[in-house]
């Protein structure tokens, strides 16, 4: 019998993907949860009394997030007021089924739930969008709309903070993807654990801060945790495929993980080093080169959402969709 390397008592029941240690289930739960607690505490993600929306899709990441946030909030008495927030993109056979899972989670964890839909906000569901534009760039529409929808939903709930289920694999994959496609601006900020658009012309905070408590949590461990605890989650991938370039980065990351599991953490470590350093100038903006002035955030003329342009990205995309279509209202 192989004994757990952590407690030296129980039979080892799994090989931990992050460390390669053979451990028992109980020890796995303990270290898994404690690492997430450390991420929350060390990064000062919340303050006592915060109302926090858990972005819930019904998938494994958000289900485990809802579970652990509820658990850790009680265990360590964070004093957080947790709510579930779901976005219904309107994808038949995918989102409708996963939302049923979210509704069951609402009951299990006794958390309030708000569902906001693309149809309601934009007058377009993803099924309708794909019917019009095909599957080639549909992720661009979905990404822009979801970001805004989350903010609008969070605003309705009156929350101070949104947490998402982005895990270590997602962060590492984004580092690679931004490197491969030459997106230097995103490369510098993609490893930030909390993101927020902070300043308008009058220096007011504009978006609700979003955090990733799973930033250092391996996707395989999330699956393992959900599996062992028999958590209720929906496991089908989005029917409208993944971005080609992200897919490229994802396959490469999985290959790296096969060679050395620590590669995921190592990429995040590199990504954090690429974050803009205070007091340092980019080599590209060496003396003599004119520096672009920082863009001032304002509000979209049409819907009022933050934007550095006259129209926000969602309204621009909506305009392309609505050419020849009946007018829609936003918000």
């Amino acid at each position: 019998m192989k004994v757990c390397q952590l407690c030296s008592v129980q039979r080892a029941q799994l090989k931990r993907p992050k460390t390669g240690q053979s451990i028992c289930k109980q020890c796995f739960y303990a270290v898994f949860e404690y690492e997430i607690h450390c991420t929350i505490v060390d990064n000062k993600l919340f303050k006592r009394g915060d109302r926090v929306a858990i972005a819930a899709s019904g998938g494994k990441d958000s289900t485990v997030l809802a579970h652990t946030m509820t658990l850790l909030n009680k265990r360590y008495d964070y004093g957080l007021d947790l709510v579930l927030l779901s976005i219904d993109e309107g994808i038949a056979g995918y989102r409708d089924d996963s939302l049923e899972t979210v509704k069951r989670n609402q009951t299990q964890y006794e958390l309030p739930l708000l569902i906001v839909s693309y149809e309601e906000l934009y007058g377009w569901s993803m099924d309708k969008i794909v019917a019009q534009i095909g599957t080639k760039n549909n992720c661009t529409f979905c990404g822009v709309f979801r970001r805004q929808a989350l903010d609008r939903g969070a605003s309705r709930l009156g929350v101070d903070h949104i947490v998402t289920g982005h895990n270590a694999d997602d962060v590492a994959e984004t580092v690679l993807m931004n490197l491969f496609r030459g997106d230097f601006a995103r490369l510098k900020r993609c490893t930030q654990i909390t993101t927020q658009s902070t300043e308008t012309a009058d220096a007011a905070p504009l978006t609700i801060p979003r955090s990733k408590p799973f930033k250092y949590t391996y996707e395989k461990e999330i699956v393992m945790y959900a599996y062992f605890l028999n958590l209720d989650y929906f496991s089908t991938e989005c029917t409208y495929s993944v971005e080609a370039y992200r897919g490229y980065a994802r396959v490469f990351l999985k290959d790296l993980e096969k060679v050395r599991a620590a590669a995921i953490m190592d990429i995040i470590h590199s990504g954090e080093a690429y974050q803009a350093q205070e007091g340092l100038e980019d080599r590209a903006s060496a003396p003599g080169k004119q520096k672009k002035p920082a863009q001032k955030q304002g509000n979209c003329e049409r819907c009022g959402y933050i934007s550095s342009q006259k129209l926000c990205k969602a309204c621009v995309l909506l305009e392309t969709l609505n050419r020849g279509q009946p007018a829609v209202t936003i918000g």
Partner: peptide, 18 residues
């Protein structure tokens, strides 16, 4: 690496009183 990976039970701190 150590600060983001718990590799021993001795590192896990649980509240004495939940």
């Amino acid at each position: 690496r150590k600060s983001h990976t718990v590799s021993a039970l001795s590192e896990v701190v649980l509240p004495e009183d939940p």
